[in-house]
Nucleic acid binder design. Structure first.
Length: 553
RNA sequence: AGCGAGGUAGGGUAGUCUGGAGUGCCCGCCGGGCUCAUAACCCGGAGAUCAAUGGUUCAAAUCCAUUCCUCGCUACCA
């Protein structure tokens, strides 16, 4: 039987600012944990992610800084890529949307959509600044709000009354780029994806695919959009930064950022391996599993499948669309649009990446928004990760080292305990199958709980004292420690997707050098006495709490 | 406003699809144990009208209806 092949993706972070921890926990972290699990299971899988580089905000920022958008986007791309690396993320390829491979893919898919009649035109009024000689997106037009008279209304929304606006409604509009008032409104055309024409096929697809572990939110929301009726969605914009649209009448347009960002999943795979990418994207039976935050829902459940269905070029469709909810916080601020608050960069200055990975996985908003606070973080890090897991491993290894002469060279787990461990392992794998990673992590905690209970019940430190000249006690001690060391070894292996550095550190004590596999659980275990023993984790102290406190609201 | 998702001990969550004793987990609280370990660990206990109201049912946290509260989406943001 051919081995199942899997593509894991995370929503592409926008290369505008450093992602905050809410962004991280909402897509890249779950995707990375899930991918690591697949690696442990020995699956044929790749993990694709990268920078979403085009679009208005980056173009505007570049204008403001007086540099080329590409330079800006590439700079941020390298920074973000480096940060994910520091957080232990192991992409098969972390690419970017502004690449030749993606450009080629975008044009190919566009041509197919066009050839098959899925591209229509839309018309709208758009502000044009005669001074800057460019079109102005709504938010670049400011003036007086027609409803409340507020002076700082932007073309998309009035901050004073909160109403959504059209830039043409603004009274006395001026351009925020040059400050001038020489603005006129011109009728512009855009190319659009004919979603109404593809709606039926998308609906059929959602109904057949959503059984594959889609979140409730994703299914209900998508079907509700379909019930309302999909509208054509623009795929072009009057901007300079992006892939130019090589069509008559669209000389000053580029493809809209969402269009090439979604196609970016394919483009990035192609950038990774120009000859093998089709073995992933165009082979039936390949499972595409996509992670994203709920803000990205309809792009992935509706627009993206519609694009692939419409192009009809043999592309696979998403198997599982896994939509995470939000990490929210009343106490700590993190905002991407404003670029303030606790982001991935300053998080690392507070604690090592494993602490964040573990704690964020424990608080992961899988089924509902989850509340993030200093107290919640301290609780997970200090009580669960450190006291339960770290301390368990440490105390077992300490006892073992103190009475090394009483132990057999090979770790043997007692039968009854082995059954219990297998039960926990079954839960762990089962939860990963269902993509319930928070629950899977809980199985690791359960294993440590089991170990802590066993160590109390058996009190090996007592048996060790009684073992002098007593072969029965010696055997008892040796059996107990075999089981305890076995549990500690399992903890090191199973914690790896969540906290890879710590998992490896624990595993080193058991002579394991490379990244673990599930099959390693049943391999002969030994203890490497040569490895220096020190606590795996430490608690968050006042210093770390204060550092976090600096990001309080 | 419309559309989605939530509201379960003091706090945080799972359970809801497929109804069957309030069943589970983490913290906190109370009592006990242990001294191998990082002031850690183990055992036991108290604590919940499962948001509210009405309905279906032998039986409702779970199904239906209505109401209230929270979050998200409804952008020429991505």
């Amino acid at each position: 039987m051919a081995e199942e092949r899997i593509i894991v993706t995370s929503a592409l972070p926008y290369a505008y600012s450093v992602p905050h921890i809410g962004n991280f926990v909402g897509s890249v972290l779950p995707a990375d944990i899930y991918f690591k699990h697949l690696m442990m299971e020995g699956k044929d899988a790749i993990f694709i992610c990268g920078s979403d580089q085009h679009g208005t905000p980056i173009e505007l920022m570049a204008i403001k800084k007086g540099i080329e958008p590409e330079a800006l986007a590439d700079g941020m791309h390298h920074k973000i890529k480096g940060l994910f690396g520091k957080f232990g993320c192991t992409f098969t390829h972390y690419g970017k949307t502004h690449s030749e491979a993606n450009r080629a893919t975008v044009y190919e898919i566009f041509r197919e959509l066009q050839r098959k009649g899925h591209i229509t035109e839309t018309e709208s009024m758009l502000a044009y600044c005669n001074t800057d000689r460019r079109f102005l997106v709504d938010r670049l037009v400011e003036g007086t709000c027609p409803y409340c008279g507020g002076k700082k209304a932007r073309g998309d929304q009035c901050d004073d009354c909160g109403r959504l606006l059209e830039s043409s409604q603004i009274i006395e509009p001026h351009c925020t780029l040059c400050g001038g008032t020489d603005i006129e409104f011109r009728k512009v055309k855009n190319l659009a994806l004919d979603l109404p024409g593809l709606q039926q096929k998308v609906e059929d697809y959602i109904k057949s695919a959503s059984g594959n572990g889609w979140s409730k939110n994703a299914v209900h929301k998508s079907l509700s959009y379909i019930e309302e009726g999909l509208k054509a969605r623009d795929i072009t914009r009057r901007l300079k930064w992006g892939f130019p649209v090589a069509e008559e009448g669209y000389g000053d347009s580029v493809f809209y950022v969402w269009f090439d960002a979604l196609i970016g999943y394919i483009g990035i795979t192609r950038e990774w391996d120009g000859s093998r990418w089709e073995e992933y994207w165009k082979k039936s039976g390949v499972k595409l599993i996509q992670f994203m935050g709920k803000d990205n829902l309809e792009f992935h459940t509706l627009v993206w499948p519609a694009t692939l269905i419409g192009a009809d070029s043999g592309f696979i469709l998403p198997h599982t669309i896994y939509v995470l909810e939000y990490l929210t916080s009343r106490s700590i601020k993190f905002s991407k649009s404003r670029g303030v608050g606790l982001n991935m960069e300053n998080a690392l200055e507070i604690m090592p990446s494993d602490y964040w990975r573990f704690a964020l996985a424990h608080l992961m908003p899988e089924t509902a928004d989850s509340e993030f606070s200093v107290e919640a973080l301290v609780e997970v890090v200090n009580n669960i990760m450190n006291d339960k897991i770290g301390n368990f491993v440490h105390r077992v290894l300490t006892i073992a080292r103190a009475h090394r002469e009483l132990l057999q060279s090979e770790i043997t787990i007692e039968e009854r305990e082995m059954e219990e461990m297998k039960r926990i392992l079954h839960g762990y794998r089962d939860n990963f199958d269902k993509i319930r990673m928070r629950e899977a992590l809980h199985s690791v905690v359960e294993l440590a709980d089991m170990g802590n209970a066993l160590i109390s019940a058996r009190a090996p430190w007592v048996t060790a004292k009684e073992a002098a000249g007593n072969s029965k006690k010696e055997e008892e001690f040796s059996k107990t420690m075999g089981t305890l060391l076995g549990i500690a070894r399992w903890v090191g292996i199973l914690i790896w997707p969540f906290a890879p550095d710590s998992g490896r550190e624990i595993s080193r004590h058991f002579g394991m050098a490379s990244d673990p596999k599930i099959s390693d659980l049943y391999e002969k275990g030994v203890v490497d006495w040569g490895v220096e023993l020190k606590p795996v984790f430490s608690k968050m102290a006042d210093k770390e709490r204060e550092a976090l406190g600096a990001f309080s609201r």
